[in-house]
């Protein structure tokens, strides 16, 4: 009797092994693959959403660039336009800001620059000595550089003779 029960047990084991081999293994690997796929899909969809949404905000900076290139070029008008524009288009809640990033060049002269930005994306406005808008730098929006550094040549070494 015991042997019979054992024999039935062995046959049941066989049946389970057949099931495990044919169905269980495939299902296990497929589950793992699906889980990984889902994780990657979520990651890519999140990334895409962020990129496209960032691009929409960047589009506002691009539009501002076009607007500034079209409008008056004198410093007070440009800054007024930019500050007014920032309040409605890139408010602080979005991380937007306008900042004076002027600095002194090697020659001691002021390099008049302003930055309009949100997150790490920005455009940089550079004014010439006459206070006219000389350039709107959009390299940051193109991912080419975080900040615009104006070309500033070091003063030539003074002749020590005499």
């Amino acid at each position: 009797m015991l042997k019979k029960i054992f024999m039935i047990g062995v046959f049941l084991l066989d049946a389970f092994l057949v099931y495990w081999a044919v169905v269980g293994q495939k299902a296990d690997y497929m589950d793992q693959a699906r889980e990984l796929q889902q994780k990657q899909a979520d990651g890519i969809h999140d990334w895409a959403r962020t990129q496209l949404s960032d691009a929409k905000v960047n589009a506002r900076l691009w539009q501002l660039s076009l607007q500034l290139l079209d409008g008056p070029k004198d410093r007070p008008s440009v800054i007024k336009t930019v500050k007014g524009w920032q309040k409605t288009n890139l408010p602080e809640e979005l991380g937007g800001f306008v900042q004076d990033i002027s600095k002194k060049g090697f020659d001691g002269k002021k390099i008049d620059m302003w930055k309009v930005a949100w997150k790490k994306n920005s455009i940089t406005l550079r004014f010439d000595e006459a206070g006219q808008l000389a350039d709107v730098d959009v390299n940051s929006l193109l991912g080419r550089s975080g900040m615009v550094e104006p070309v500033m040549e070091a003063p030539e070494a003074e002749d020590e003779e005499g």
Binding site: Q25, K26, D28, Y29, M30, Q32, A33
Partner: peptide, 8 residues
């Protein structure tokens, strides 16, 4: 089974 899942 592994290669089928991998192909998928």
């Amino acid at each position: 089974a592994k290669s089928a899942a991998s192909a998928w």
